[in-house]
Amino acid sequence: MDGVRKSIGFQGLLTVEAQGRGGGLAMLWKESQPWRLTGFYGEPNRSQRKRTWDLLRNLSRDSNLPWCIIGDMNNIRSQTNKKGGAHYPQWLLDGFNDTLEDVGLKDIDLYGHPFTWERGRDTDSFLEIRLDRAMATTNWFDLFPYAKLYNLEGSPSDHSAISLGLVCRITGDKNTKYFHATCNKRQRINLISKLKNDSGQWVDWQDGLKALIQTFYTDLFTVAPVEYDQVIDCVPHSISQDQNLELNKEVSKEEVKVALFQIHPDKAPGPDGNVLKGLNDTSIVLIPKKKNPTVVGEEKEKSNSSRGAKADSSV
């Protein structure tokens, strides 16, 4: 592992050797402003869960450094952190939340699927829970104000992997100038000022570029009549009658509330940075796939649906 550390330019290394066929652990880091990271595994036995809470309180007293803790907590914070199964015991919710309040740890927002553990997929007893999370103290958020936690789905395990992305706060005149120079350079690269039409003539925003782009994507997304009944008839049914009845039930207010509250508050803005007003409004941004594009279609489309549309699709 030391060779790996040197090859990727990291200064610190901590390893835990494998035990038999059990996998080991390796933690690597670069030197920066000191802060504290704790990898955590909560007590799985509910009757012994107080041990986890006491351990967190003891760890919080060990240091005043900015602190981040990440791992499988084996506990949730609210009923919205689970889908399916029996009601989560209130005493476990209260005990966990009281502990986090005492030690000053706050959740780092999770991007992606809201649950990180599952059991019984493709059965009537399918259960999903957010057991894995990352939390941090206020002075850690001051150090990493743009931190994001991602749910990396597709793991063969019953847990999905989570990834914590960090960007330090930029301070100082030289760093600020570099930051703005980098942003300005990216803005210039992404700027589309003119493109060629079907006749090979250049058109700009004053000369019909808007109409050219609208026509291209209107034609692209216009669906031609298709006879698909024969194809559908060949697809075997995978949803039972009972499941179909459940899916066609009227959406409750609670389901709408859960879907809305799972959307990050900064998500689904309009072109002016505010929330789009129309229920199905979508803002589309074209980003060049290569430097200096010449025709429509040499860009990738990034869409930003309204909060209402996102909630509708989530429900």
Rank of each mutant, 00 (worst) to 15 (best):
L286C: 00
D281P: 01
N280E: 10
F261V: 12
D266W: 06
L245F: 05
V285F: 09
V285H: 06
E246L: 11
V256N: 05
N244Q: 14
H264I: 04
K253Q: 12
N244K: 10
D242W: 06
Q241H: 12
G273C: 03
E255W: 04
D272M: 06
Q241A: 12
K289P: 01
L279H: 12
N280F: 10
S283C: 09
V251L: 07
N280Q: 13
I263D: 07
P288A: 02
K267Q: 14
P288K: 03
D242E: 13
G273E: 07
K257G: 06
P271G: 00
K257N: 14
G278A: 06
A259G: 05
L260S: 05
K267C: 14
H264N: 14
K267F: 14
K267S: 15
L286F: 12
G270P: 03
D242S: 13
Q243C: 08
P269E: 11
H264P: 10
L247E: 13
P265H: 07
G270D: 08
D266L: 15
S283I: 05
E254N: 08
F261C: 14
L245V: 04
D272E: 04
A259E: 07
P271M: 00
L245P: 00
V251Q: 10
E250S: 10
K277I: 09
K267G: 06
N248T: 05
K289S: 00
A268G: 01
K277C: 05
A268C: 15
V251K: 12
G270N: 06
L245Q: 11
V256W: 13
D242N: 12
Q241P: 01
K257V: 09
N274Q: 11
E246A: 12
L245H: 09
N280Y: 12
P271K: 05
E255Y: 04
S252T: 15
P265D: 06
K257Q: 13
L260F: 08
S283F: 15
E254I: 13
P271Q: 06
Q241N: 04
S252H: 01
E246D: 09
V275F: 02
E255F: 06
K253E: 14
E254H: 08
E254Y: 11
V285S: 07
V285T: 11
V275R: 03
D272L: 08
G270V: 09
H264D: 15
V256K: 14
P288N: 03
A268V: 05
V256Q: 08
P265C: 03
N244E: 13
P288T: 01
